[in-house]
Design a protein around this nucleic acid. Structure first.
Length: 554
RNA sequence: GCGCUCGUAGCUCAGCGGAUAGAGCAACGGACUUCUAAUCCGUCGGUCGCAGGUUCGAAUCCUGCCGGGCGCGCCA
């Protein structure tokens, strides 16, 4: 029995009680949940439903709880129900009902944890979105890890997800990039407003290698070559470093296409139809203040040029036209000022900004060595890059470290901590369970111990306190995923895996899986092997959501 | 000034309106002739920033204040 099943059972028992007592069933919630009490004396699971609906239904919570306890106690799989405090229901399950899940988990394999929670929802996730003027830097790194994990989470929870990287290779930033390349190729110092760092010289050298006569051209023509080829090289490098990091995007979207296809004008027309456009001081404005923004925003400047915000509008409209119900954009904390205008823009299109547009803000990340933030990259000069992270920690530790914390909190990633081989390093702690379960399974196979047929599995043998705790944790996995996906917070998955890891290590310490010496193989050994393998399944599935490997050996 | 965000153990952080607020680190003390000790167990450690409010019940929701971070352009 899963927690979700139990919750349904509680609700149906409540309905039965309401019916026999002639109570108003509208006081009951559409769905309920059971929680796992901290204190083991409070049972395997607890329900607060009597507390929640007692008053509404006009019955004292304890009285309602008593009736519910009686009804619930008759349901299959439930060993006992006690009433505690003001009306808590403390529920204990039959060992077989809990233990049976170990088999279900093993048989489901990599599909364990999948739900249909978000079935039918089309969600667009945009993250990283750095322009190709340099390597992916620290601001994008957090979202590369978190955004990618979120996309995997949402897919596992049943959503149809499109990941997207938005860039602009035509703006003034790119001009500065091109001028910087040209200067580097000519051995001149970087322009005052240009880009520094060794990568500029490297890219410039690459360009010259591919087009040896470039420096004999006029500065104007040369700069154009550097712009085109340089952007191509830079973008290839960005994609390669993201790929090395395990991150792939379904769509790389160039702002230029919005211009070429006239989508900015289309967005403007659409907004005008909705009645939110006005002209002032020669410019064209969107009245975003109508929907709570601080000030109205210019879409088209008095010189006729489009603003960046106009492209944002067109891009949003483009995503919506492609059928995405939810447009999710992940930005760094320095961009949180955009939320107001973006939400208002969505409303101006006639959308519901609470539903159709989500903007997630990620706080700052520091890479820390010896207690001091690492500020500079060897290659990029002014900032720390994705490669710096991976070089310092490796892919697994980097992804785990970034996905482990709420994006709302600024974090320091300590190089010493995340490269340690010990339980103070969370990624090792969790991966060690993957290795340990694999090792136990190998040893079992060597001794001729196999799980046997699913039909012969005896879940009621798993009665040890540590077995019970581990089973309950494993059973929470689908709920953790669904909740994590709903909140857009992958860090819950990491925290959950750490909890499962602790439960497994404690189980391992007290419950021997493989037979000792010439001990005979028993049903208990086999039952524990099911539990061992179920643990490996959950750890492997969870780590894969975070893009982290589940090694067989360490 | 306005807006967003954070404030929980010495440190780094979890915490779904529920019961005695948790984990890791640090400190101290234990556990390997047996499945990986990269592990486990125990001890120590709290005005959940402050003050009100809502609630049967608040770290959690609301309001105000204090403190830290960030943002407030016809820039990109």
């Amino acid at each position: 029995m899963t927690p979700a099943n139990l919750a349904d059972t509680v609700l149906s028992a409540a309905r039965a009680v309401f019916e026999t007592r002639g109570l108003d069933a509208s006081a009951l919630p559409a769905s309920t949940a059971v929680e796992r009490p901290r204190n083991p004396e409070h049972g395997d699971y607890a329900s607060t439903i009597a507390l929640q609906v007692g008053k509404k239904a006009g019955v004292a919570p304890r009285e309602l709880a008593a009736a519910l306890a009686e009804e619930l106690g008759r349901r299959p799989g439930i060993k006992s129900v006690e009433i505690a405090g003001p009306g808590f229901l403390n529920i204990r399950l039959d060992a077989a009902a809990t233990g049976g899940l170990a088999r279900d988990i093993v048989l489901a394999g990599s599909a364990y944890g999948r739900t249909e929670r978000f079935a039918g929802e089309r969600i667009n996730l945009e993250f990283v979105s750095a322009n190709p003027t340099g390597p992916v830097h620290i601001g994008g790194v957090r979202w590369a890890a978190v955004g990618d994990a979120l996309s995997r989470l949402l897919r596992t929870a049943g959503a149809e997800v499109g990941t997207e990287y938005y860039f602009n290779d035509a703006g003034s930033q790119i001009d500065r990039f091109a001028r910087s390349l040209l200067a580097a190729a000519k051995g001149e110092p970087a322009p005052e407003d240009g880009y520094g760092g060794a990568y500029i010289a490297e890219i410039a050298a690459e360009v010259v290698k591919g087009a040896p006569d470039v420096l004999s051209q006029s500065d104007e023509a040369a700069q154009e070559t550097f712009r085109q080829v340089g952007v191509e090289l830079m973008f290839a490098e960005i994609k390669a470093s993201l790929a090395d990091f395990g991150v792939h995007f379904d769509t790389y979207f160039n702002e230029k296409d919005l211009h070429d296809r006239g989508e900015l004008q289309e967005a403007l027309d659409r907004l005008r139809e909705q009645g939110h456009i006005f002209e002032s001081e020669g410019a064209t404005w969107l009245r975003t203040t109508e929907f709570g923004d601080d000030k109205d925003r210019v879409l088209r400047k008095s010189d006729g040029d489009w603003t960046y915000f106009a492209a944002d509008c067109a891009y949003y409209l483009d995503k919506r036209k492609r059928g995405f119900d939810r447009v999710v954009i992940m930005l760094g904390a320095d961009h949180h000022g955009y939320i107001g205008r973006m939400k208002a823009m969505s409303a101006c299109f006639g959308d519901d900004p609470d539903k159709n547009l989500e903007i997630l803000i990620g706080q700052l990340v520091n890479l820390v060595r010896d207690g001091e933030p690492v500020r500079m990259s060897k290659r990029a000069g002014t900032v720390v890059t994705l490669e710096d992270f991976v070089e310092a920690l490796g892919v697994d530790a980097t992804r785990y470290a970034l996905a482990r914390y709420s994006s709302d909190s600024p974090i320091d990633i300590d190089i010493d901590l995340w490269t340690k081989a010990g339980n103070e390093n969370p990624v090792y702690y969790v991966q060690y369970v993957a290795a340990r379960t694999a090792s136990v399974a190998r040893n079992a196979a060597d001794l001729g111990l196999t799980r046997g047929d699913a039909a012969d599995f005896k879940p009621d043998l798993l009665t040890h306190e540590k077995e019970n705790a581990l089973l309950k944790s494993l059973n929470e996995y689908p709920d953790v995923i669904a909740r994590s996906a709903e909140l857009r917070e992958p860090h819950h998955v990491a925290r959950y895996l750490e909890k499962v890891s602790g439960d497994y290590h404690r189980f391992y310490g007290e419950c021997r899986v493989t037979p000792l010496g010439d001990e005979k193989i028993t049903d208990l050994h086999r039952a524990r092997l099911w539990l061992n393998d179920a643990t490996r399944t959950v750890i492997a599935n969870g780590l894969s959501l975070l893009g982290v490997s589940a090694p067989e050996r360490m």
